Simulated assay, not measured.
Amino acid sequence: MMRPALAMASLAVGASASIGSQAVGLPRGLQEGPPNLMDPQLLQDSCSRLANFTSSASPILAYGKTVQGWLNEPSCQIFVASAALIAGLCLTWDGPQLWKALFTLALACAAAFAARFEAEAWHLQIFSIFTVMCQAAVIVGTAVYWGFEGSQVLLGSCCGFAGAYGMGAWVRSLDATAPGLAMFWYICGSVLGIQIFTAWRRGMLACLAPVLGGLLVSSAVGTLISRAGLRTPFLPKDTESWLTATEALLGLDGTSSLALFGLPVFVAATVNGFDDARRPLAVAGA
Rank of each mutant, 00 (worst) to 15 (best):
G20P: 03
T246W: 09
K100S: 00
V221M: 07
N36D: 13
S226F: 07
L43G: 06
T131D: 00
D175W: 02
L281K: 12
F266G: 11
V132K: 03
T244V: 13
S21D: 03
T54E: 06
L263G: 00
V153N: 03
S173V: 12
A286I: 12
A51C: 10
G166A: 05
G193P: 08
E247R: 08
L252D: 01
S21T: 01
A137Q: 14
F113S: 08
M204N: 10
Q135G: 05
T104H: 01
T54S: 08
F184E: 02
N72R: 11
L91M: 07
T223F: 00
M1Q: 08
A83V: 04
G163W: 01
R116V: 13
A112V: 09
F113A: 12
F113L: 15
A269Y: 11
A277N: 12
V132H: 03
V67F: 15
V265D: 02
Y165F: 14
T198M: 11
E149M: 05
Q44L: 11
L124W: 07
V217T: 13
V271S: 06
L71Y: 03
G95W: 04
A17C: 04
L154V: 14
T232E: 00
V67D: 08
Q125E: 10
M204H: 10
W99A: 12
L260C: 03
